[in-house]
Design a binder for these strands. Structure first.
Lengths: 367, 367
DNA sequence: GCTTGCCGGTGTAACGATGCACCAAACTAG
DNA sequence: CTAGTTTGGTGCATCGTTACACCGGCAAGC
C-alpha cells in the first residue's frame, strides 16, 4: 500500500536521491559500477517503481497519447485501436482509450480530460464536419490528429489529418458494381453527419454519373436524424435498410454500396431475412475490410483501408518528437478495392465465371 | 503551450490559490457568491484546467483504471472494452487500454506500467493458469480483477475474479449438439494454455460422456504450442482446423464446438472453402455471442456471456470505494445458450422443422 | 606547498494542487 | 465593553522526482 519512494531506495543504497534519479534517467556516465549495483539491488529489493505523477509534474512530459474512437465495439475501430496500441508500445507510449459514440459533447469532454491528463497528443477518430467544439483547446496548443476525417479548409492549421480518400473509396466500390452491369445501386449508411460518410457518398454519386446513372433516381438509405447512430449499431442500420429497400414499392436495387463493413454485413443479414442470396440476387460492397469481411459467407467485396499504416502515421503525428515540430502535413491515402464473392453481375445478366475471392488477403491488420 | 496554473487563476480573481482550490473541490460552504463568480470567470477566461499529475501527486488518488485484454481487435474484447469504458465514464473514470496478446511478459509489463500510473485497479482479461508473474505486485497492494478467468485456489486472496462458468458453457454448447443427435463432435480451439479454454473443453468432455460418447475418440483441434495465438488470429485457427478435420483420413465430425465465436466463424469459413454447408452438412456452435454471431450466414448458435453485466461487476471491483474494502468475492456467472441456424440435426437424421434463429437477440451489448 | 582539474556524487529548489491550521474582521451575547 | 463565535478566506508544508549548481577530496603539475 505505501508506495516505495526514491528516498527509501537512496537510503537503502546509501546514496542520495539525486544519484538514484541519475541512474534512473541514464545519467550514468560518472558513476562507479559499485554504486550502480547497490542502487540496482536496492530497487529490486524494495520493488521500487517511480511515481509517474511526480515525474510528470516535474518534467512536464508524459508517455501517453489519447485515442478517441466512435466505439471499440466496432471491429474496425477495435483493430485500429490495437494497431495504434501496438505501435505505441514500441516507442514506450501508453494509450488512453475513449469511445465517443460520434457524439460531439462526449468528444469534447474526452478531449478535455485527456488534455488534463497531459497527453502528448490525441488521435481523434471522428468525422464531424467542424472542429469548432475543440477550437479553444487547439488554440491553447493541443496536439490533435484527426483520423478518418479529411482535412478541411476551415480547420486550425496545427491539426493533422490522416485519412483515406473516401471519395475515391466510394467511387471504387460503386464503379465496381456499375462495371458489373448494375444499374440500380443503393447507398446505405447511418446518418450522413460525418465527413467520411459524405465523402463516400459523393464518390458513389460520381461513379454513378460516370456510368450514366442519375444518383437522385437511386434508392438511398441514410437516416437524417440529429442523433446519429453510434458505430456499434451500424449493423442494425444495414439490416433495417435491406428490409426497407426491398419491401418498399419502388424498384429494388440489384447492388448495394454500404458505408462500412458492419453496415454491409447488416445488409447481408437483412437480405437473407428476405430470402435473397447475396452475391447472386443482390450484390453488396462494404468499406473498411475488417477481418470478418473475409470470413463472411459470402466473403464481402469491400474497400480496404491500410489500417496498420494509418495507425503508424497517426501515432507519429500524435507524439512529440524532434522531427515533427513543423506543422505536420495531412495525409490522404488511397484505398484499395478487394473483390470477393458478395458482388457479381446482376441476376439475369450473362453469367460469368468470376470469383475474385482470394485475390487479396492476409496483410490487413496482422503484425 | 504554457499551461495555466491555479496561481494565475488566483491572481486574476484576486484571491489566494487556496480559495480557487476550495472552489474546485466543492468546499464552497463558506464562500460568498461574488468571490465564487470572480473565480469562475477567471477560470473560463484563462481556460484553466487543473493539472492531473499535480493533483494526483498531492492526493494520491487517480480516476483511472487499467484494462488489459488479449486484443481489442477481437470483437468480443472490443465490446467488453466499450462496455467497461461506458460504465467507467458514468462514475467519472478513465480507462487505460492495453493489449496483451495473451502473453505473460506483456501482461507483466503492462501491469507494471499501469501500477506506475497509479491506477485504482486493473481489470485483467487473461486466463493464464497462474498469477505468479504478478504475485509481487499483488502483494504490494495492487487491486486486481481478473476477467474470464475463474478464481483458482492458489490465487492471492485479494484477487477478485469475474467470469462465467466455462464448464457449464462448454457443456451447454456440446450437449446441444449431442441432443440433436450428433455423435462425432469436434472441439476447436487455439492452444489450451488458458483456464477459460480448459474449462470449456472440460464442459465439452462432460457433455460427451453424459451422452455416452468417449471424448478421447473425438477429433480435437487445439495446438499445444508454447506461444499461443493472440486472440486476433482466432479466426485463422478455426479455418485451418476445419481444413484439417475434414481433409484428414479419420472420421469427419458432424458437429463442431468452437472455443469462441471468432474461431467458430473461422470454422464456418473453412467449411465453406470445402464446399460444406454449415447448419446442414456440419453444425457449428460458438462461444461469446458477439454481435456478428447473429449477423453471420447462417446465424451462429453460441453461448452468450452477459458482457454488460460482467463489465459493470468488473468495474465495481476495480474501483476503490467505501463499500468494497472487504476482500471482494469472486463471481461465476451462468452463461446462456443461444440457438440459431448454424446447428441442426446431423445430415441423414430425421429432418425436423426447427429454426431457433431469432429465439434470443438484441440485449447482448447495447446500451 | 599551492593551484588546477576532475571525479563521483550531493543539496536544493522547483513542478502545481491540496487541505489543515490559522487568522483578521465582523457580529453576538451577556 | 469584552469574550466568544461565526464568516470568509489565506499561509504553508507537502506529495515524489528531477536537474542544475555546487562541493569535498584526491592527483597531477610546477
Amino acid at each position: 500500500m505505501p508506495r516505495v519512494t526514491i528516498q527509501q531506495v537512496a537510503k537503502a543504497a546509501g546514496v542520495s536521491p539525486s544519484t538514484v534519479s541519475n541512474l534512473l534517467n541514464g545519467r550514468t556516465s560518472k558513476m562507479v559500477p559499485a554504486t550502480r549495483q547497490r542502487i540496482d539491488h536496492a530497487i529490486a529489493e524494495l520493488g521500487y517503481r517511480p511515481n509517474r505523477a511526480a515525474r510528470q509534474l516535474r518534467t512536464g512530459r508524459t508517455q501517453t497519447i489519447g485515442l478517441i474512437v466512435p466505439s471499440v465495439g466496432n471491429p474496425f475501430w477495435g483493430s485500429f485501436a490495437r494497431e495504434l496500441e501496438v505501435a505505441a508500445l514500441e516507442i514506450g507510449c501508453n494509450v488512453l482509450l475513449c469511445n465517443s459514440e460520434r457524439n460531439a459533447e462526449r468528444e469534447r469532454r474526452y478531449v478535455e480530460e485527456l488534455w488534463e491528463d497531459g497527453v502528448q497528443g490525441i488521435v481523434l477518430c471522428s468525422s464531424l464536419p467542424s472542429l469548432d467544439h475543440l477550437a479553444d483547446l487547439i488554440a491553447r496548443g493541443l496536439r490533435l490528429v484527426t483520423f478518418d476525417r479529411p482535412a478541411q479548409a476551415a480547420d486550425p492549421e496545427s491539426v493533422v489529418s490522416i485519412s483515406i480518400n473516401n471519395h475515391v473509396g466510394g467511387f471504387l466500390a460503386t464503379s465496381h458494381l456499375t462495371a458489373l452491369g448494375h444499374e440500380q445501386v443503393a447507398f446505405v449508411s447511418g446518418s450522413l453527419g460525418s465527413l467520411n460518410r459524405v465523402g463516400r457518398f459523393r464518390g458513389y454519386c460520381t461513379a454513378l454519373e460516370e456510368a450514366g446513372i442519375d444518383p437522385a433516381a437511386m434508392p438511398t438509405w441514410a437516416p437524417m436524424g440529429d442523433t446519429p447512430f453510434g458505430d456499434f449499431e451500424a449493423a442494425q442500420v444495414g439490416r433495417e435498410a435491406a428490409r426497407e429497400l426491398f419491401s418498399g414499392n419502388g424498384e429494388a436495387p440489384t447492388g448495394i454500396v454500404a458505408v462500412n463493413d458492419m453496415t454491409a454485413l447488416g445488409c447481408c443479414r437483412g437480405l437473407r431475412d428476405l430470402g435473397l442470396t447475396v452475391g447472386k440476387d443482390v450484390s453488396v460492397v462494404g468499406f473498411d475490410d475488417i477481418v470478418l469481411a473475409d470470413l463472411y459467407d459470402p466473403p464481402l467485396t469491400t474497400v480496404r483501408q491500410p489500417i496498420a499504416r494509418m495507425a503508424a502515421l497517426a501515432l507519429a503525428e500524435a507524439v512529440e518528437s524532434e522531427n515533427n515540430q513543423e506543422p505536420g502535413r495531412s495525409v490522404l491515402l488511397r484505398p484499395e478495392l478487394v473483390v470477393r464473392a458478395s458482388s457479381a453481375p446482376p441476376a439475369g445478366s450473362v453469367p460469368e465465371a468470376r470469383r475474385g475471392d482470394e485475390a487479396l488477403e492476409g496483410d490487413s491488420a496482422l503484425r
